[in-house]
Nucleic acid binder design. Sequence first.
DNA 1: GAGAGTGTTGTAAC
DNA 2: GGTTACAACACTCT
Length: 282
Amino acid sequence: MPELPEVETIARRLQPLLPGKNVTQVSVHKQKSFHGELEELIGSEVVRVHRRAKILGFELNDGSYLATHLKMTGQLIYVDDHSKVGGGHPTADWVQELPSSHTRITYQLSDNATLYFNDQRLFGWMKHLSEPEYMDLFSSWGPDINDPAVTTEYLYQQLQRRTIAIKQAIMDNKIVCGVGNIYACDSLNVAQISPLRSAKTLSKQEVTTLLEAMKTVIERGIELGGTTFDGKYLDIDGFAGGYQDELRVYGREGEACPNCKTLIEKIKIAGRGTYCCPGCQT
DNA sequence: GAGAGTGTTGTAAC
DNA sequence: GGTTACAACACTCT
């Protein structure tokens, strides 16, 4: 499930690979997954790979952008050169079989490189946008969680206006971007705050603790290359991330809390599975 | 074999 | 404006 660390990992891996390459051919296998005019894309050169919130943007040489949101099951897989067995960029074995039944778009690039957009559940998308259209994607959103603009003061002011559960609040893009279900659960466990607490009841000290926990957990997620569950998130070479081995509470119902050894519970908040410790998260 | 659960986000309704 | 419910979808699990 791509959240900020997963998308950031993809951006960092693609940045040294894509700039300077041209789009030579595009095959859209599922019309729903692609928005824009294909003809305008052919011949474009990738200038830069960029992430904002959970959106990945490829800046092109004409000033337009190819933007993508992976939603829950999207993957971007990069293959250096299918004809070079064992050469070039290393990939998982199954990558050699692409395109698969879940491949929605295939981009042929110069130097025989290929970029596959796979998306099992068809929620994800790729859009070719002008610069203003691209910027407009973010117009109603707050800053990224790892943006220095997200200070205790900022977050505290935002939370003071909300009566919703704190877990829901930190996942709200209008407040702060990039915190998904997995990292929200883990951050609240680090901060020892109950996900059920109404947002406005947090003291300034608790907001400070929570913010630090969120930034630390997200940073650790980036360091380890993201979280892979059931193969739903994969890096550009088809391999899994590493954070799932360090998860504190997410997906660990019935296991001991890393803080106090109380058994972790699974509850539901706003229709989303939520894992927390009834012992130390108050 | 039917039904529920999964997770992100925009939208519509309150 | 905040909050809530739901739709978009395919696949797994009960």
